[in-house]
Simulated assay, not measured.
Amino acid sequence: MHETPIKGRGSVSNKTSRFDQFQRVSFDDEWAIDDERAPARPATTVSMETAKSIISRNNSPDIPFDQSINPYRGCEHGCIYCYARPTHAYLNHSPGLDFETKLYAKGNAAELLRATLSKPSYEPKLIALGANTDPYQPIERRLGITASILAVLEEFNHPVAITTKSASVTRDIPLLERMARKNLVRVFMSIGSLDKAIARTLEPRASAPGARLDAVRALSQAGIPTGVLVAPVIPSLTDHDMENILFSARDAGALNAAYVLLRLPLEVADLFREWLKAHYPLKQAHVMNLVRQMQGGKDYDSEFRTRMKGSGVFAELLEQRFRKTCAKAGLNQARPSLTVDLFRRPAIEDPQLDLFG
């Protein structure tokens, strides 16, 4: 059965996860359904959870940080290509529509982070926000968990790198500006395409490309080191926009740039194919053929050496285009490390001392 796209959602299905014993399959029983009886658009639900730990750690050689924080699980942006979708299977949810509609918020994130940073054994290292799900997805406007995390990091003078595809990051400019003056923060705006039509279905609830460039400009004007992440690069669909994105970001004040090739781990491959069939059926075969050419003949190659950039002729051409465009645009001229030298543990006020004052 051909799945019908849902306005405002990325996935066109809600297939069960790889851990489920039984799989749900849609089929046409030829019974007509009146519009009034048609299923309603799935609403977003948010469950508050009490996290046991807040800093995730990794030792991947192709990732430039080994500490990250994810304030939310699941992401309402609904980006069909999101490599974090398979993590929703651990919650007994579908990596499809469930990932973008059944969200979890770590309500105790700031409290837990403060306790973690206060431990004498904690060694300050760069923390990344946005490594998995977007810290500025729509529910952040209401819950403010990311803002509370940043407040704790500022309190401890702890360095942080933020990656987002939301213009809502500009709400925190006053705090980010203060941290930037101490060389404690940088922001990367993720922009995969400047085509509004593609972006509307590829990442339906993320900020429009123009709004993201405006956010880059606002951040840069505030003195906050800002870069652009061209991601994901999708062959034959968005790759032609690479140069335009880099020059537009440069004009908006971006200093640095990076790119990441489309990654399709686990359930994401099937979800992406469904999306292609629904929105770009005539390009489906060509796009997937190019993806496999760049992934060693598979939908996804998880090798650390190639998973971010791919391999083969097409991947090499992409790398050359990126490098030459960055040189012409004056990007990546310098990227000083954020400092850990200012890290401090604030003094703890002890009410017992008042007895002897």
Rank of each mutant, 00 (worst) to 15 (best):
I69N: 01
R344N: 07
L261Q: 06
V260S: 07
D172F: 01
A252C: 02
N70A: 05
R345E: 10
C79D: 00
R292K: 13
T4S: 14
G78D: 01
E36G: 09
G296P: 12
G8T: 08
R9E: 06
A110Y: 08
A215F: 07
T238N: 08
E316R: 13
F247N: 09
K102F: 03
L331K: 12
H286Q: 15
P61Y: 03
A215Q: 08
D34L: 11
V169T: 03
V12H: 02
V233W: 05
K15F: 13
R141G: 01
A161Q: 07
K7Y: 11
L342M: 12
H158R: 04
A269H: 05
Q295S: 10
E267R: 04
L266D: 13
K283M: 14
Q221Y: 00
V313L: 14
K182M: 02
Q221M: 00
S193H: 12
A109M: 08
L264A: 04
L237Y: 06
M308S: 13
S53I: 10
G10S: 04
Y300G: 11
V25D: 04
E349D: 13
I245W: 04
A285P: 13
A199Q: 11
A208T: 08
C75F: 02
P95E: 05
V152R: 07
V187E: 01
A257Y: 02
A110L: 09
L338M: 09
G144A: 03
T325P: 07
L264G: 03
H93W: 00
P120F: 14
N157S: 11
N92G: 00
F19A: 09
N132C: 12
R141I: 06
G296S: 09
L282C: 14
Q221I: 00
S118E: 12
S47W: 15
S248G: 12
W31A: 15
P235T: 09
T201F: 08
P61K: 06
F188N: 05
P61L: 04
R18W: 15
P124S: 08
T16E: 05
A329C: 11
